[in-house]
Design a protein around this nucleic acid. Structure first.
Lengths: 250, 250
DNA sequence: TAGTTGCATTGACTTGGATCAACCCGCATG
DNA sequence: CATGCGGGTTGATCCAAGTCAATGCAACTA
């Protein structure tokens, strides 16, 4: 069984000159609608580490990630932070019908987003119901991902958490992939140890130790700090604690 | 400041003879639509402990909780369980456009649900876009709740977790409320220690110990095992670790 | 009335991951 | 070329929560 890719659950569609296929745009969209999208869209770039929006900020746009990686995270008064969303290329951020962002949006790598002004986007949604349908589907998928992540946070061990994250990155983000074949995958790790720890509800020291342990056990091979090779994806998946089929997470 | 209730974020609407106001039904629904809902709906009852649907089952309906409490949970191969959703009266379960449930749905107390056959419900959604909009809003709220829950699972201490859960139950579920006034609230605890531990990513022993600790510290008063009085809701909220305004959680 | 069953509590002990601290490495910068 | 700085690693120690086990306490029920 080839497990290197999850089954495609989205019909991604190219909108105008975007270098990616957006999840947010519906396969049923016709020329007029795409032309309208073209009118209300614009691009924004961010450097690694920059904040796209602070929790509580009014966000006047919705957007797709074109290139790079962004994270959604929540912070407690005393500074404890938990990542609550990971945005890979083609992912959508934004809350039609909602004013403010309830979490910080941060660029973890250099980032380009394709933004749509919120007001006209919402109007377009009202006029073309299938965009709303599409968004509902996507939101349901995000909810599934969030729930799988809850299982990870509540019940998995540190090692399982790390393995799960690596499995997601290895399988979902084609843009990071360096090489692939015969059950082996190499990719660029786009997160610092600290970002990983925020994703997983751990400290960065624990992340580092578990990465070393996986390396010692031959589950992963590293070259430098950021390049990971998974010689046998199935062995990695065994470490995740998930049942064999993987899941929907991010 | 009165914090005993969160601001209403939903317009609940009565559909026909339902004893509750459903969140799922839109304020803009007119007579025809309500009549149609009437046609495709039916009630189902479950006893405490009964399973409504198993993970992987085809679910051919969507539903609102009328009375009682249900939980959504995921299980790992080795039996570790994590609750990923808590359904209080008026909450909605179901995944229009999706085949199977990705988690177990269980009645924790005796439960009555108002079900709508999925097929006609979906058709209705297509014909009346504002129902889709409504569902999108609800799903976005669920996603917010899930993300707040992720913060709880990943970063809060056992004591904060317990306090957070009690705060949610005290504030959100009017149907459990026994008495209220002047910052004090009494309510019926609808979960066993085990269910609480599954919600919070703890063991039941830890839940029990922390409940005892909160009792010792006068944050809560208990009568029997299931009746809780919170003499001062603000003191409880201080224990949650959240910033003062509480949140959206469930 | 005594036994059973299903929660809940409490205690003793263990442990996985947090905390604190030292140190390494690559690289930008005055 | 030192100097600092932003990662990353590793070790020693600690402690919150897990594990294992005994006990309590209603509510049934035979």
């Amino acid at each position: 069984m080839n497990r290197t890719m999850t089954a495609p659950r989205f019909i991604h569609v190219k909108c105008g000159d975007c270098p990616i296929r957006h999840r947010a745009v519906c396969a049923r969209c016709d020329g007029d609608e795409l032309a309208l999208l073209e009118e209300i869209k614009y691009y924004r770039s961010f450097e690694a580490g920059q904040t796209v929006a602070w929790s509580g900020d009014a966000m006047d746009f919705v957007a797709s990630v074109v290139t790079g990686i962004a994270t959604l995270s929540q912070t407690m008064e005393d500074g404890r932070r938990q990542m609550v969303g990971l945005l890979l290329p083609s992912d959508f951020v934004g809350r039609p019908g909602r004013e403010a962002a309830p979490y910080d949006v941060t660029a973890t790598t250099d980032l380009v987003m394709c933004c749509f002004r919120k007001k006209p986007f919402e109007e377009m949604m009202l006029r073309t119901p299938h965009i709303g349908q599409r968004l509902l589907e996507m939101t349901l998928d995000e909810l599934d991902a969030a729930r799988e992540w809850m299982l990870l946070l509540g019940r998995k061990t540190a090692r399982e958490k790390i393995a799960s994250l690596l499995a997601i990155l290895a399988r979902r983000d084609a843009s990071l992939r360096l090489s692939e074949g015969d059950g082996a995958i190499s990719f660029e790790l786009p997160l610092t140890r600290e970002a990983m720890s925020e994703y997983l509800g751990l400290t960065l020291e624990t992340v580092s130790r578990q990465m070393s342990a996986l390396r010692r056990d031959g589950i992963i091979v590293t070259e430098g700090k950021r390049q990971i090779t998974v010689p046998d994806i199935d062995r990695l998946l065994e470490e995740t604690g998930d049942d064999s089929d993987g899941g929907f997470l991010v």
